[in-house]
Design a protein around this nucleic acid. Structure first.
Length: 149
DNA sequence: GCCAACGTTGGC
DNA sequence: GCCAACGTTGGC
């Protein structure tokens, strides 16, 4: 049993018809650009290489659909002249069963998730116990054990 | 520094 | 398509 948090976890949102999890799998790596909200940017900057990402489809699907990871820590957003940041994101594994927003709301262990409290923020932190609950609900093994912090 | 107007996000 | 939440902008 490995119950100890190994890394931080974050949830990132994307509208699947703009850039879905399948696009990330196809690309193998992508710069998570276009974030134009200070709090979301600060979350990007707090990410460490190897942190776990929950990939969430907003609007359409409204579900966590896959695991991903931070492949490169924050650097300046090449799509902006201003002080915005990106990280590079790589896919790990799709969820066997997506975990929908409805399920998240209906699950007491997930009632405190940042994504519910800050529903419009596109990059939010996720507590490790919440990650484990989502992995369990999705029938998906957490991808590769990572280094302890 | 306040606050109203406005724009964006995202659920429904 | 509507609307609530909420961050940002700009006038004062």
């Amino acid at each position: 049993m490995r119950g100890v948090p190994r890394q931080a976890a974050w949830l990132v949102k994307s509208e699947p018809y703009k850039y879905g999890y399948a696009d990330l799998v196809r690309d193998g790596l992508t710069a998570w650009d276009g974030v134009r909200n200070y709090e979301a940017r600060n979350n990007l900057r707090a990410m460490k290489k190897g942190d776990l990402l929950l990939f969430y489809h907003s609007n359409e699907g409204k579900a966590v659909v896959g695991f991903a990871t931070v492949a490169r820590e924050a650097y300046p957003d090449p799509t902006s002249d201003e002080d915005w940041s990106v990280v590079d994101v790589a896919p790990l594994a799709p969820l066997v069963r997506p975990v929908t927003l409805a399920t998240i709301k209906a699950t007491p262990a997930l009632a405190g998730m940042s994504m519910l409290r800050r529903s419009r923020l596109s990059v939010v932190d996720v507590a490790w116990p919440e990650v484990e609950v989502i992995a369990r609900l999705s029938g998906t093994r957490l991808p590769g054990a990572r280094r302890a912090r």
